[in-house]
Design a protein around this nucleic acid. Structure first.
Length: 314
DNA sequence: ACTCCGTTTTTC
DNA sequence: GAAAAACGGAGT
């Protein structure tokens, strides 16, 4: 995945301008040393408060009905927070600092999360560079996001089981069923189950893909990272999964065309079709700049035609 | 070193 | 008070 290109940095810096939130330094926080582009002297997110004017990208992003997209002006908050931080630093008092990510950063993060719940080390590093965040922040965000999805899924199940009428709105980033399928099928190398399984439509149908089953496959970042074909070079050079091979897959089976059919309830998300403006428009625009090669859009899941086994051995 | 998960703390 | 970033601990 080639996230790191020349342009996005500028794009992001400009686009984060509307977010005048107090971008923060990690004063008391320990540096884990994995932050790539930021030194301890240079706070990772200081750029988010730079430009006073919103860019076209952020104007676009402002369509998202997110609380943080509300046209609030909070310039004083930044200074206030900085002052408080300096003060507390002077007193040697440890103050936790919570960064408010910009909408642009969140959009890109969510876009990636929709496609992959787990990023490799390299992917996280690249993403952190592009977003001008630290590696640790990206990692933490993905972890929090996974927990958020998990919580939402539990809530959904609970609501169902109790015949609750309350509508729980799904986080957009939790909706992409296809992303999970992709993620599971893509590497197909050395993992215990995938490697021994011929993933044709029959196999899919026989498998109950709820989160439990999914988790049992051991698809955490560790196993994911261990896949040889997970390196960005492989992704980029071969393209075999993102485009050609993927489109040649057998995902026109009833199961695939109706991805909910054999899923566990966790994935039976009522608002699957709903996609935010943020994702559809902004991220697509940003993806152009990001030249994201892993990008496999949802519609790609549904439109393939050719029956055949998933090339799990490749 | 990574994950999950519960918790803390901040921001809105 | 809710949401979310960040932390800490336990497990792998």
């Amino acid at each position: 995945m080639s996230v790191a290109v020349a342009s996005p940095q500028n794009l992001l810096e400009a686009s984060d301008s509307k977010n005048s939130s107090p971008v923060t330094t990690s004063l008391g926080a320990k540096e884990d040393g994995t932050s790539l582009q930021m030194s301890s002297a240079e706070p990772p997110y200081s750029e988010t408060a730079r430009s006073p004017l919103p860019s076209s990208v952020d104007l676009l992003l402002q369509k998202s009905p997110d609380s943080s997209t509300s046209p609030k002006v909070k310039l004083p908050a930044s200074a206030e927070t900085d002052a408080a931080r300096k003060e507390s630093k002077g007193q040697g008092k440890k103050q936790k600092v919570r960064t408010v990510f910009s909408q642009t950063q969140l959009c890109i993060l969510k876009d990636h999360f929709q496609k992959q719940k787990y990023l490799s080390l390299q992917q996280m590093q690249e993403l952190s560079e592009v977003l001008n965040l630290s590696y640790k922040q990206v990692k933490t965000w993905f972890q929090n996001q996974r927990m958020k999805c998990k919580r939402w899924q539990k809530t959904t199940n609970w609501s169902k089981n109790n015949h609750a009428v309350t509508q729980v709105s799904a986080p957009t980033e939790c909706l992409d069923v296809c992303a999970s399928y992709h993620q599971g099928c893509l590497p197909s190398g050395n993992l215990p189950m995938w490697s021994n399984q011929s993933w044709n439509s029959q196999a899919w149908n026989n498998q109950t893909w709820n989160s439990q089953a999914w988790n049992n496959q051991g698809w955490n970042s560790k196993t994911w990272n261990n896949q040889t074909c997970h390196s960005s070079q492989m992704w980029n050079s071969s393209q075999m999964w993102c485009t050609q091979a993927w489109n040649n897959q057998a995902w026109n089976s009833p199961t695939w065309n109706n991805p909910f059919q054999n899923c566990g309830e966790e994935f039976l998300l009522p608002q699957f079709q709903q996609t935010s403006l943020c994702d559809l428009e902004a991220v697509q625009t940003l993806d152009f700049f990001l030249n994201e090669s892993i990008s496999v859009q949802s519609e790609d899941c549904m439109k393939t035609d050719i029956l055949g086994p998933c090339p799990s051995g490749q």
